[in-house]
Write a protein that binds this DNA or RNA. Structure first.
Length: 396
DNA sequence: TTTAAACCGAACGTGTTTTG
DNA sequence: CAAAACACGTTCGGTTTAAA
């Protein structure tokens, strides 16, 4: 097809008549009409009671009319557009002549001038307080034993590249000795924290926990800035480097490799996704059920459509693990503790209209759920917690 | 509901390096 | 060489969030 040269070409070529748009005929009233109708009600009130509506808390409709009138009076444009309609003189239109200082003060509709505070009392400017002096100001300087750390930084970079570690938003409670951070794009190791002051409140004044740190930077410098300074710069432009998940999972594999089929009480932990057509369910991304079954998972879910546990709908198996010596109650409790607010909270009604609240559905990405299950099986879960905002598991 | 901690932002200080 | 620009560090207040 030729390229269109002008807008006219485009309109002339409208074979499906899609550009022939008629202006929408709106039956809705426009703002002026609404305002007019609204003022009409105030007029009706005045005609009926021969007084202005008062701020009478006992009478909601009178209060509404009072508020309306007040709002109209505070807006010069509304006043003007309603001038002709003002049959009871409610809007009192005469322009006041301003000749004297007194006239100005008397015309103070918004109480702007009725402020008895001192002009020289600064309420919204910073106070001129004494700042506590610091013992000294840390400076970044070349790190004398950087060769000790160089490989660590290289490893972290590699893990980041391989996706084994991630960068997540900084929070003060993940400022920990031995952890890695990124500040202004530079990797940083918080090598040491030496807290010399715990958080206390003295005479209403807040003293925060603080103390010198040793921070090593990827570029071969180090700084002994204060703990609070480290927190501050990372809030401003920093990230946290997460733990290497492979290391976390190693323990799990070790624990599993020496378990045999002869072990007692084998069962399956499984992860499912719902095929429900329910709007409430469809609109939730990353919704999975984690469950435990003594029989094969396929067997367990055969009647999913009739089981409120499965949201009365078919399900799709995502993964399952064979496991041993698992206590189902404990599993459920662990999951709820771990995922906290990420549990699905929804009411499901079965065929007899009885209400159920399934408790084993969780909102989290599948890789996080798999990690969580591995941590639960290995027992390592107690050393971790789930960060809902970043949707990631963090070592405590 | 009250209280404590976490979070976030900002003012401002102190050295170091660059520039006129 | 002093001033200005820059980089980094310290302290504090207010608001939001979590815990008791």
């Amino acid at each position: 097809m030729d390229k269109f040269q002008t807008l006219e070409d485009i309109f002339a070529n409208d074979q499906f008549d899609i550009l022939n748009v008629k202006p929408k005929v709106s039956s809705a009233r426009n703002a002026d009409e609404r305002l007019s109708a609204s003022f009409g009600e105030v007029n009706d009130f005045f005609a009926k009671y021969n007084k202005e509506p008062q701020p009478n808390p006992g009478n909601i409709s009178e209060f509404q009319l009072y508020s309306r009138l007040k709002s109209i009076r505070s807006d010069i444009e509304k006043m003007q557009s309603l001038e002709e309609q003002d049959i009871h003189g409610l809007l009192n239109f005469e322009a006041k002549e301003i000749n004297s200082i007194d006239d100005i003060f008397n015309d103070d509709t918004f109480d702007l001038l009725d402020d008895d505070s001192d002009l020289f009392e600064f309420k919204h400017t910073p106070k001129d307080y004494e700042r506590a002096p610091s013992d000294f100001v840390a400076r970044r300087k070349p790190c004398k034993d950087f060769d000790k750390y160089e490989m660590l930084f290289k490893d972290i970079q590699k893990d980041l590249g391989d996706g084994k570690r991630k960068l997540v938003d900084f929070k003060e409670d993940n400022l920990r000795e031995g952890d890695f951070y990124v500040h202004n794009g530079v990797l940083m190791l918080l090598e040491n924290i030496n807290l010399t002051q715990e958080e206390t409140y003295v005479e209403g004044k807040r003293l925060r926990k603080d103390g010198r740190t040793r921070c090593i930077f990827e570029n071969g410098t180090e700084s002994n800035m204060l703990y609070r300074s480290a927190a501050k710069i990372l809030y401003a432009n920093g990230k946290v480097v997460t733990q290497n998940m492979d290391k976390v999972n190693e323990n799990f594999i070790e624990r599993f490799s020496n378990i045999t089929d002869e072990d007692a009480a084998a069962g399956y932990i499984y992860v499912l996704r719902s095929k429900s057509k329910d709007e409430r369910i469809i609109e939730i991304d990353n919704l999975y059920k984690i469950g435990y079954s003594k029989v094969e998972v396929e067997e367990r879910i055969k009647n999913a459509e009739k089981d409120p546990t499965y949201l009365m709908a078919p399900v799709k198996i995502i993964t399952s693990w064979k496991c041993y010596n698992m206590n189902p109650q404990k599993l459920e409790q662990l999951l709820h503790n771990f995922f906290g607010k990420s549990c699905l909270n929804i009411d499901i009604f079965d065929e007899k209209k009885r209400r159920h609240t399934p408790r084993e559905w969780f909102i989290a990405p599948i890789d996080v759920i798999e990690q969580a299950i591995e941590l639960i099986i290995s027992g390592e879960v107690v050393k971790h917690r789930y960060d809902e905002k970043n949707m990631i598991i963090i070592e405590i």
